[in-house]
Design a binder for these strands. Structure first.
Length: 418
DNA sequence: TCTGGGGTCCTAGGACCC
DNA sequence: TCTGGGGTCCTAGGACCC
């Protein structure tokens, strides 16, 4: 059996955790630059605040209903996530952290009643972190997702834990679940399926396997099997990322290549730090730039370049050089750039590096990077930068930022004794 | 005025090989 | 007029996830 444990309205719950006066009130969290909605409390959902809606479009709702708005505080969410995951790891020898707010647990060998087990996890996490979670348990990962959906949706009845462990429950659940809400069926597939009269997960589960394979590839077939109770996905105990991306929508539009180049350099340096943290080397990278996609149609330009590196490296210097030279090749004057990014890929493990006879990463960079990482970790990022990076740190729009309660000693919560 | 960021996997088709 | 057959590898782009 698999459990899927998912934090309820995770970012909003993190904010409320340190500000209990917000309990019962509508809360939303915005993306970088206070751009659009990325988390909503149940109260905010009920008021009609949609997911991923631009902030300015809900301004009237915010004012009319006194919705409390937060700027994204990723240091806080990342730290809270670690705490939640750490507690949950005690409930199974195998934990797959699927995203910042959810994980799968392998429950093979658990003797306790599954519903109770789920409830126990839930109250444990709630007590120790203040974050409410929902637990779905079933014989396949996809059905565990379905069970989780039910646990959350009918919290009053389930208490936040639901188990699909019989044909009766499986069929009842699938008949209830709309096909577009199945894990793995997105907008495109949902349209196709509805066109042939499939409305529910149950109707999907009865489709002919060949038809599904032809129209939805191997993923569709796996989905079909999983919904029918046959395991097609196992725990994925992932070690390392296969790609690392740093991309940003800028707070302003850039026209000068030097300015863009500084930002790209910083993206590459940041990505390189992450690369070194997971002890990998990278063999290629993509740089992309783009004008404002919401702007005037005739002023649009976007381009990307995938460059192979002459040798595997994790050096910030070498990676940022490669990135800026890629930028030089795609940059065009007379455009106003609003978005750009660097994506590292094609990794190998540090330990599996085969030096080449002719071209290799500069060996001196290894200890240099170690020292830079050490200093930046100790004194806060980034005391040390490359000269090619921008001099001042860019300030994104964050008008509703909460303190970093759990990761910065100067911002810990203060308790006043009366 | 204002419109996010970070991932994974699959497939079709091109380039190349014999 | 007729113009083989069987492979592998790589990549861009699509679809999906949170």
């Amino acid at each position: 059996m698999f459990a899927l444990v998912d934090c309820n309205n995770f970012y909003a719950s993190c904010e409320r955790m340190f500000n209990p006066s917000l309990n019962g009130k509508p809360v939303v969290v915005l993306s970088n630059n206070d751009g659009c909605v990325i988390a909503r409390s149940n109260e905010a959902k009920a008021l009609g605040v949609g997911m991923a809606v631009p902030a300015f479009q809900i301004q009237h709702l915010v004012e009319r209903n006194q919705i409390v708005v937060f700027s994204a505080n990723f240091p806080l969410y990342g730290d809270m996530s670690q705490r939640v995951m750490s507690i949950l790891s005690g409930y199974s020898p195998e934990q797959e952290i699927y995203s910042i707010d959810e994980c799968f647990l392998n429950l093979d060998g658990i003797q306790e009643d599954f519903t109770d087990y789920g409830l126990r996890m839930r109250s444990h996490v709630l007590k120790w972190t203040g974050i409410p979670v929902s637990v779905g348990i079933a014989p396949t990962k996809t059905l565990a997702k379905v069970a989780n959906h039910i646990a959350k949706k009918f919290h009053d009845r389930t208490g936040g834990s639901y188990v699909i462990d019989s044909e009766l429950r499986r069929i009842k659940a699938l008949k209830w679940l709309k096909v577009e809400d199945v894990w793995g069926i997105g907008r495109r597939q949902a349209i196709k399926l509805k066109a042939i009269g499939v409305q529910t997960a149950y109707e999907f589960s009865l489709l002919d396997k060949e038809w599904v394979r032809r129209h939805m590839t191997i993923n569709g077939v796996k989905l079909l099997e999983e919904l029918n109770g046959q395991k097609a996905h196992d725990m994925e105990l992932k070690e390392k990322r296969q790609s690392i991306a740093i991309t940003r929508t800028f707070e302003k539009e850039y026209t000068k290549q030097e300015e863009l180049s500084e930002r790209i350099t910083t993206f590459a340096v940041t990505a390189a730090e992450k690369l070194r943290r997971q002890k990998s080397f990278c063999r290629s990278l993509i740089v992309f730039i783009s004008t404002n996609r919401f702007g005037d149609a005739c002023e649009q330009y976007s381009n990307s370049l995938h460059v192979k590196l002459p040798f595997p490296t994790s050096s910030s210097i070498e990676l940022s050089k490669a990135a800026t030279s890629a930028l030089n090749r795609i940059f065009k004057n007379d455009f106003r750039y609003k978005r750009a990014g660097v994506i590292l890929m094609d990794f190998i493990n540090e330990t599996e590096l085969q030096p080449s006879l002719f071209f290799n990463s500069d060996p001196r960079h290894k200890s240099l990077m170690q020292t830079i990482d050490k200093l930046n970790n100790k004194f806060g990022n980034p005391v040390l930068k490359l000269a090619a990076q921008e001099f001042r740190t860019w300030k994104m729009k964050q008008e509703h930022l909460s303190p970093r309660y759990t990761t910065n000693i100067n911002e810990v919560i203060r308790v006043k004794l009366l």
